[in-house]
C-alpha cells in the first residue's frame, strides 16, 4: 500500500466530480462498503473497488484516479447503485469519472477503438457483406449511414478521438 502524500492531493477534484452529471451525490457516501461487496468485478479483481475509488475522489487523488485503468473497469451492472443506502449513484459516478478523464485527454484504448468503429459505420460493427447473409434468411437490409453520427461526435469532441484511432489503422 502506497503512502498518501497530502501535498499531491487536489481538493478541486471532488468539486469537478460533483459538477459532472452522475457525480453530484458523492459526498453522501459514508463508506459502508455495500458497493464493493455487491460488485461482480470486485469479486475477481481487487483493483476495482468502488468504495476505495469513491474515497480516493473525496481525498482529491485526481492523478491517481484519472490515470488508472480501474476507472474503465466498471461493468455498468448497476448492482451497487441499487443497493447504496445513501443514494450515491455509483454507476453514474463511474460514468462521470470516465467523462472527466476524457475531458483531460485520457481515453482507454478499448473505448477509442469503439468510437472509431462508430465513427466509420454509425454502428459498433460493420454491416457490409452481412446484408447478403441477412437476405438469405429473409432479414431486411441494414442501412449504413455514418454521416449524422459523425456530426454528433464531432460536435462533442469525440470525433477527434475516433479519427485519431482511424488514422493509426
Amino acid at each position: 500500500m502506497e503512502v498518501i502524500q497530502a501535498e499531491l492531493l487536489d481538493p478541486s477534484f471532488v468539486e469537478e466530480v460533483k459538477n459532472t452529471p452522475g457525480g453530484e451525490p458523492i459526498t453522501k457516501c459514508f463508506a459502508c462498503g455495500t458497493c464493493s461487496v455487491s460488485c461482480p468485478v470486485r469479486e475477481f479483481d481487487e483493483e476495482f473497488n468502488p468504495r476505495k475509488i469513491i474515497h480516493m475522489v473525496l481525498l482529491g487523488m485526481r492523478d491517481r484516479v484519472l490515470n488508472s485503468e480501474f476507472v474503465w473497469l466498471c461493468s455498468g451492472c448497476v448492482s451497487c447503485q441499487e443497493r447504496c443506502p445513501q443514494d450515491v449513484t455509483i454507476t453514474e459516478l463511474m460514468m462521470a469519472l470516465k467523462n472527466i478523464a476524457v475531458k483531460h485527454g485520457i481515453v482507454h484504448k478499448a473505448f477509442e477503438l469503439q468510437a472509431g468503429e462508430i465513427y466509420k459505420f454509425g454502428r459498433l460493427f460493420e454491416v457490409g457483406d452481412l446484408n447478403k447473409r441477412r437476405e438469405k434468411i429473409n432479414l431486411p437490409s441494414i442501412l449504413e449511414d455514418p454521416k449524422p453520427i459523425r456530426e454528433i461526435l464531432d460536435d462533442f469532441g469525440v470525433g477527434e478521438i475516433a479519427r485519431r484511432v482511424i488514422e493509426q489503422d
Binding site: 452529471p21 467523462n99 442501412l143 449524422p148
Partner: peptide, 20 residues
C-alpha cells in the same frame, strides 16, 4: 432504416453525445 447505434458506447466518453 435510419436508426443508428443507440449511443451506449459513447456515453462513457461523453454522456451528452450519447444522449443526443
Amino acid at each position: 432504416l435510419e436508426f443508428t447505434c443507440c449511443g451506449f458506447p459513447i456515453r462513457s466518453l461523453n454522456q451528452d453525445a450519447g444522449f443526443l
